[in-house]
Design a protein around this nucleic acid. Structure first.
Length: 759
DNA sequence: AGATTTGCTGTTTTT
DNA sequence: CAGCAAATCT
């Protein structure tokens, strides 16, 4: 036990050894948050304060859950299986499988990812003849998810106008559709579990008596429903150990509520709020930059990181003329870092939005530097994988209409729009799923639809006693997917992915204990499950969800849930020594020796959409704070005068965040081309910046108004700006000027008082 | 029915 | 620019 606690600083030690009562740990970036969390669990178990089965640890990402599990197994000699460590969604999935009857779900219920959810909504709108111009599917999806994240069902929402009344109505219809099809979306997993435990007292008490210690990672990211879920689990007597950092709250846009930290402090009567402010990650200049920037936020709990490491290198700032040139500069710097001996995978290139990666990827590819892009499309989101999964879904739950529609005619088998229209009418008339409506269809359409049903039934029969990977293999062949892609010229990658699906199934089976050695895990795992059987309201005996997954659901159901909950990595080339490309959001929780933060421009970072939202800019600032604190030794920040977006060139101002970082920690690198000078010499401008919009070339020398597109100007009221476009000529000319945070203005050039800004 | 082309639109982050 | 849906061609 001594060596468990050894090497902890006083604050960390205090946090780890707190008495069994609720506590809030404010853990700054790089302050050893995960270490405290895992050591706390190990300490509780080793000192006999709780059995492994009494621990519930909740995270937001599968990666974090896995990491915690790995570290714990290294610390503790015992089997970690009895512990419940997982994401909110993963844990809810487990609970709903075990108690599916009480939750009014089929045992084989399936989970919609956001893609699936959106297409389910589109289908709903079409089926009800709703104008999707007036009710955009995306908006309805936000509406529904927002409501669920607030714990509200349709009937609990008060609508004050016709539009919202209709939205509520559609929400209700959506839930009915999901229920009919035996599917649940992400938010539903949580809400359904919450409702289940609220209404079912014996069940609630069972889990409350079991989980004496609840630990929550990234507490600042909890939404209202998750917070209430935790309250329900904690009951009157259990201790919640919450770890979080309000300065790293970057998911407000999807319902995360930092206010939960304050509410938690109050409602759980937290006596000790422990702050971990010692940073073990970054050098001084980097930390100073982060601290200075975040101090511009008003709503903070207050915390300042410090380090024992020296100042280190200054933060390097670079101004590029174009996004292309920015990418080239990054590559030059990265090359010299590598030449100095840096590992490629210790260098990260971060950006605000995924679209920015394209230019950088292209430049890296041309330069022949290995790189890996995180995020973007992931394995289980690929179309061919979705197709294969849809076949498997239909075998496990034929009432999933989304899955049915996805593959009923893929590969094509002569079932067109007309046949499906008939089928949908029949399904609606008899109130059944598409699959179940097939027998009602006669004639040619009925024959081909019947053949499809036979295909599914046949595959199910044929594979019922096969191990999961072989089942997948059979389905790939029987469905015709393999043949289809083999005949397609661009199908080689897809074939490879489908083969990887079989590997994924193999891996899943071995990791989850569905393999041949599974019986060894079937014995009782914890004291809790050996306790008295509990009885629900309708007299049904309840099994403890702690039992291995095998007893709670079939390998296929489990695998399908896994595919939705853990979309998987996007590329197989993990482990390679490659530059790391990702959004700032997905960099949270990671660290690198050297970090490039790119595209620091008004409108991009902070993003323009954030200006309108309440507290939006503060969230962007926290995002920047997260980005900065990823770096250990070297930090580079860049921005560009021009950038291609949606196929056209945009002229941006540098980000306001530059004004909020301490000048003494920064080192401005002199750009190769002086700011805004390129336009003075059109010829060289073309050579240096091929990405520049044609209109500039046309306008140069044509508009005789004394100003040029791309020129930097200053205005008494709006500050600095860039001329984006000029319309009209002579005395009536007007200019569109991007004033960054003051927005885009249309000014009459003969009236507005503008000054030139020298480069 | 199915393949292909055109046309339009909407763009942040993701469990 | 790309992803999707409607329109048009085979």
């Amino acid at each position: 036990m001594q060596n468990l606690l050894h090497n902890l600083n006083p604050e960390q030690l205090a946090a780890v050894t707190l008495p069994a009562q609720s506590a809030l740990i404010l853990a700054g970036a790089g302050s050893g948050k995960t270490r405290v969390l895992t050591t706390r669990i190990a300490w509780l178990i080793q000192t006999g304060q709780v059995s492994p089965g009494g621990v519930l640890a909740v995270t937001f990402t599968n990666k974090a859950a896995k990491e915690m599990m790995t570290r714990l197994s290294a610390m503790l000699p015992i089997n970690t299986r009895g512990m419940w460590i997982g994401t909110f969604h993963g844990l809810c999935n487990r609970l709903l499988r075990a108690h599916h009857r009480d939750a009014a779900l089929p045992q084989t219920f399936q989970i919609l990812d956001s893609q699936d959810q959106l297409s389910a909504i589109k289908r709903l709108l079409k089926a009800n003849n709703i104008d999707d111009e007036k009710y955009p599917p995306r908006n309805l999806m936000y509406f529904i998810n927002n409501a669920k994240d607030s714990g509200l069902r349709a009937h609990q929402i008060e609508a004050f106008d016709d539009y919202n009344r209709r939205m509520v109505e559609l929400y209700e219809l959506y839930d009915q559709q999901c229920q009919r099809e035996g599917v649940v979306d992400f938010a539903e997993l949580l809400l359904r579990t919450y409702e289940l435990l609220s209404r079912n007292q014996p069940l609630r008490e069972h889990y409350q008596n079991r989980f004496r210690h609840i630990l929550v990672d990234e507490f600042q990211d909890t939404n209202n429903l998750q917070y209430n879920w935790l309250k329900l689990m904690a009951g009157e007597h259990n201790a919640i150990f919450a770890v979080g950092d309000d300065d790293q709250s970057i998911y407000a846009f999807r319902g995360a509520n930092v206010g939960n930290m304050i509410a938690f402090e109050r409602e759980f009567k937290v006596e000790n709020l422990i702050k971990l402010e010692q940073n073990y990650r970054s050098h001084g200049h980097i930390l100073d930059t982060a601290n200075a920037l975040i101090s511009f936020n008003q709503n903070r709990l207050g915390k300042n990181l410090h380090t024992d490491a020296g100042h280190g290198e200054p933060v390097r700032i670079y101004e590029a003329t174009s996004d292309l040139q920015e990418a080239q500069w990054i590559i030059e710097e990265a090359k010299s870092l590598i030449a100095e001996g840096s590992m490629r995978n210790e260098i990260a290139i971060l950006y605000r939005s995924n679209a920015q990666s394209r230019v950088i990827e292209h430049a890296l590819f041309s330069a022949g530097i290995p790189y890996r892009v995180y995020g973007g499309q992931r394995f289980f989101e690929r179309a061919e994988i979705k197709h294969a999964i849809a076949y498997l879904q239909l075998m496990d739950n034929p009432h999933n209409d989304s899955a049915f529609l996805r593959v009923v005619n893929f590969p094509t088998r002569g079932i067109g729009a007309r046949s499906l229209e008939q089928l949908q009418d029949a399904a609606k008339q008899y109130g059944v799923s598409l699959y179940a409506a097939v027998p009602y269809i006669t004639g040619k359409a009925g024959t081909s639809l019947g053949a499809f049903v036979k295909l599914i039934e046949g595959a199910r029969f044929e594979t019922q006693n096969l191990p999961l990977p072989e089942m997948v293999q059979v389905v790939l062949d029987a469905s015709g997917l393999m043949t289809h892609y083999r005949n397609e010229k661009e199908g080689a990658d897809r074939i490879e992915n489908l083969e990887q699906l079989v590997s994924a199934a193999t891996l899943f089976v071995s990791e989850e204990g569905f393999g041949l050695d599974a019986p060894a895990l079937l014995g009782p795992q914890s004291q809790a499950s050996a306790g008295p059987a509990i009885v629900t309201e309708d007299g049904i005996e309840v099994i403890d969800a702690d039992a291995p997954l095998v007893t709670v659901m079939s390998p296929l159901s489990a695998f399908l849930a896994h595919a939705s909950l853990e979309a998987g990595d996007n590329q197989a080339q993990a482990g390679q020594d490659a530059l790391q490309l990702m959004t700032v959001h997905s960099a949270k929780g990671l660290e690198f020796d050297a970090v490039f933060i790119t595209g620091l421009e008004e409108g991009l970072f902070p993003h323009e959409n954030s200006q309108k939202e309440e507290g939006g800019v503060e969230e962007e600032r926290r995002l920047m704070y997260v980005a900065i604190t990823r770096a250990r030794r070297r930090l580079y920040i860049s921005f560009s005068q021009t950038r291609m977006l949606h196929g056209q060139t945009r002229y941006n101002m540098k980000s306001r965040f530059f004004d909020e970082m301490p000048e003494e920690s920064l080192k401005w690198l002199s750009p190769k081309v002086q700011q805004h000078h390129w336009f003075a010499n059109p010829k060289s401008a073309w050579d240096d910046a091929p990405a520049i919009d044609n209109r500039i070339a046309q306008s140069i020398g044509r508009k005789d108004v004394g100003w040029r597109i791309g020129e930097a100007v200053a205005h008494a009221k709006f500050g600095e700006g860039v001329i984006v476009n000029i319309e009209g000529s002579g005395g009536s000319a007007r200019a569109h000027i991007n004033f960054g945070r003051h927005g885009m203005k249309l000014l009459d050039l003969s009236v507005a008082k503008l000054d030139r800004i020298a480069g």
